[in-house]
Computed example of a mutant assay.
Amino acid sequence: MAWKLFSRKKSVGFKKNLKAARDAGGGETLPVQDTRAAIEELSQVVKNDPEAVEIYLALGNLYRSQGEIERAIQIRNSLIVRPGLDRQFKARALFELGRDFRRGGFLDRAEKAFEDARSFGQDPTAIHHEMARLAAERGAFEKAADSYGQLGLPLPQANSLVRLATDHFNEGRDSQGYRALRHAIRAYPGAIEAWLEQIVHAYQAGSLRKVADILKDALNRVEPGLRFVLLEGLVQAMIKAAREHSEGEIGPWANACSDADVAKTVLPVLETQEPDVLLLYYGAVFLLRVEDVEAAKEWLEKALVMEPGFWLARLELFDLSKENQTMTPFFEEQLAFFMGHARKVRRFYCRRCGLKRDQLFFNCPRCRSWHSIAFRTEFSQ
């Protein structure tokens, strides 16, 4: 009976919205306006033809993509208990129910739903993938890494190994932590999170030579568009160490390298790379941490030559130059206000879905894409 539904006259955009609904099954969040339009369209169709199983499944995916987990679960359950439902549709409904439960944080229920879906003939590879994600969300990172490895997915495998390494480090098992990081890089040489973790630990231990060697290798092996993550992560580590020292505490950053030593170590490494606007910008950031203003200006000016629209480099350069300007108290106050707000602009975004964030991420919190982070060199990004 469902096939008759598609022979009826549809309103403009129906096919587009149906495709969007099906695509939402992977946990991606669609643009709100398009998604709400699709929900309204499909809800009306389902109301007119409650036998349309495909539409029910698509509508449930849309509800999940919008975070309306309870409504998505209700739709799956209404299908699962339907008498005479084809095994194929029941398997899909159970599979999507498992995704709904996982999205809602009900991990035990999600596992049960996936096992039931398997028993009804759902694709075992898809089940295996979801089980790997469940293991990662439960903190069973070694199991998750093994599963991703079996699936031939080296990037999430490496990410799970890095998270496993973090657990080892937190529990004082450093040798196991370093081993997990090496395994992560072997699994995926471009694992930016593994390289960054190594750099931060070398910095924390006060080993400048290791910082330089690891950074040099990492810059040559990760995707060029992600190299800024290494430098941003190191800067954030330096900020944490400085905060600990200023508070007079003796904590995990007690042996960290000094800012001056880091600048002397990192800048020569950056100078060996091909000219890159973000490497130049971060070179200036390291110089500013040791108050070498004139050298920082030179690096920022080079960045602006490469990309004149790089707003943050222009902002920093203006801030360094304003002392040479004559301003009225009113103008200076307004300028400080606007610059303060400009510095709060979120610097990072997801290349796939456009999500903007203040902090680094390796897996987009919204669309779940891997290594999609980018630096907003222009406001329009």
Rank of each mutant, 00 (worst) to 15 (best):
D319K: 14
T35E: 01
E70P: 00
T125L: 15
H341P: 12
R102H: 05
G26M: 14
R22I: 14
A21M: 02
E171S: 15
F120T: 07
R71G: 02
A20Q: 15
D116F: 02
R376H: 10
I373R: 08
K356M: 10
G98P: 05
E316M: 14
E244K: 01
G309H: 02
F337P: 10
R22P: 04
P252I: 13
S369I: 10
D34E: 08
N255E: 11
A202D: 11
I80E: 09
L355G: 06
E70N: 01
L59T: 00
D86Q: 13
E51K: 10
A113S: 07
V293C: 13
I373G: 06
N255H: 13
I73Y: 00
D108W: 04
L151S: 05
S258C: 02
R8H: 12
G233I: 06
L5F: 12
D108I: 09
A187F: 01
F169M: 04
E197P: 06
K143G: 07
R357W: 11
E171L: 09
Q273G: 06
D123P: 03
A242Y: 11
A52G: 00
I214G: 15
L287Q: 09
S78A: 07
C364T: 04
E68D: 07
A52H: 10
S7Y: 13
F101M: 09
G149L: 00
L320M: 06
S78Q: 10
E247S: 10
K9S: 15
E111G: 02
A113D: 03
V162F: 02
F362M: 12
Q122T: 03
Q176F: 06
R92S: 13
L164R: 12
D174T: 09
E130R: 07
N17T: 11
A110T: 02
E41P: 01
G84R: 08
A158Y: 00
V293Y: 11
L18W: 04
V53P: 01
L270E: 06
D213S: 09
G105N: 03
L280D: 15
F330W: 15
A194N: 03
S372N: 04
A72C: 03
K322N: 12
G172H: 01
Y282H: 09
I69V: 12
H129I: 11
L57S: 00
I127M: 08
A242E: 15
A132M: 01
L18F: 10
Y349N: 05
G26V: 14
L134R: 02
C350G: 03
Y349I: 01
S65K: 02
Q150F: 01
F318Q: 12
G98E: 11
I39T: 00
Q204K: 07
D86V: 07
L164F: 08
R173S: 12
L151Q: 02
K302Y: 07
R179Q: 14
R376C: 04
L155K: 15
E142N: 11
A218F: 07
V266H: 00
D123S: 02
R103I: 01
W299A: 09
D23T: 06
R76L: 00
A191M: 02
G283W: 06
R368E: 04
I73L: 02
A72N: 04
A165P: 00
Y188F: 09
V45F: 04
E301P: 07
R376D: 13
M339F: 08
A38H: 01
R343T: 04
Q198M: 08
K344D: 09
R221W: 14
I250F: 15
C257H: 08
A191D: 05
